[in-house]
Design a protein around this nucleic acid. Sequence first.
RNA 1: GGCGCUAUCGUCUAGGGGUCCAGGACGGGUGGUUCUCAGCCAUCAAACCGGGGUUCGAAUCCCCGUAGCGCUACCA
Length: 493
Amino acid sequence: MTSVRVRFAPSPTGFLHVGGARTALYNYLFARSRGGTFVLRIEDTDAERSTEASVQAILNGLRWLGLSWDEGPGVGGEHGPYFQAQRHTRYARVAEQLSAQGRAYPCFCTPEELEARREQQLARGEDPRYDRRCRTLSPAERAARAALGLRPALRFALPEESQEVAWDDVVRGRVAFRSDVLDDFVLLRADGLPTYNFACVVDDLEMRISHVIRGDDHISNTPRQILLYEAMAASPPVFAHASMILGPDGKRLSKRHGATSVEAFGDQGIIPEGMVNFLALLGWALDGQTEIFTLAELEKVFALERVNPNPAVFDTQKLAWVNAQHLKRLDEADRVARVMAFLSTRGHRLAERGPDWCTAFVRALGDRIRTLADALEVGAFVLEDPPPMESEAWAELLGRAGAAERLQALAVRVRETREWSLEALEAGTRSLANELGVKPGEVIAPARVALTGRKAAPGIFEVMWLLGRDTVVARLEAAAVRWRAESPLAARV
RNA sequence: GGCGCUAUCGUCUAGGGGUCCAGGACGGGUGGUUCUCAGCCAUCAAACCGGGGUUCGAAUCCCCGUAGCGCUACCA
């Protein structure tokens, strides 16, 4: 019985990108759905680009999504360390074995020489590949070069005979390469640090990884890795290559498409539930019908075999919709807490108005917010005093005959309203319209503009209630005054 | 250039030879509900990349082409 062990192995060179997040999610879901172990390993062999800040950003991104790891940074485990930078002696040991077996050899070519040769090959129309000149160096020649102080890199010795290297990819079926399209790639750099392919194989082997789930940009690395497993007399794990996530232009998603880190989406008001659900759907479907899932539900129904091999375009519209679905499914207290937390990051401290007010506020926002950030827009009437006046809304109000009188009358009515409740406010407004002989909308529409500065807003009585008597009266009167001053319909004195 | 992967509505996808004149969802159009918007309900438009095969029968299998993407580093 082989237990399922998967890993997410990001290199800490930036934030957690949505592509990486989806890979992490698929790994996590596969582990959970199979009762397996989800390992987090940091691939920081590139000291130039790796930073501690990135490590933290990635961990935070995973935590935000709710993807907890069973082994890795912060939680430990039996197969650590989980930072490649701390595993050098292991790579060196394996490298030595490979060398002893004749499957690896030192290469004294300098990067400059290699680059020059590569260009020559290209110029001749050949495929740029290492010419293996150091592979046949005699021990004496090697010693001579080392004596000159030259630091060699260690290269993998590909099989002499070309062979087919193939595997059954869980998402793509059988994939095959001929080994002669490969070259003797570097295992250890001259500075002794392992390259990706080498470290990856050593670690996956030592960490007993059973399934490697990653992006399809690794497909062409897979034959190299399989050859390494063979050289190490080990059987390779099962591979599953999910495809890339593309931008709206069909190109691989990148920074120029705007936000691509999960953190940035959080800043835009996407909640983890929405992000996880949307990411899951990007390349996977349960039945083509069900769209909304919680992480817990995904853990039960996710199947790697149902991951789709074609590249998916990241559609922010659908993300917003999925997010909205989760937002409306949150229980009220939770939704209120999240909206308040989001707004406070933008400097709006609403908590001091009391829990009842906050609940009413979020209730008033209702389904008008697809993301938490929408609360900034939809709730602007209460977030700013006065809120910005949309010129189009004001222009329309100016063209409405008798608007000032109605606003004025409503101000009086509101001032006189004894009970500050939605019901009383609505009754007062409707009876006023009735007394004025106009439809309720004739009073409500001007009031909406006066109170919110917009033509579209939450229910007018909720708006009034939230604003409070003084503010409502003040905005109504101010609008009436301004209307009289600016409207061509105003009677001039 | 070489190698590889992919190819169903604008987008995410269901579909694994007949039950598909291709289903769902986002987005879009229209109508209804309503104080506006949103939401909700109803409804419409919208796709099997092209060409060959295989088969009684192909969206489904094979081949070729085309297109997109990926890799082609002492990056991961």
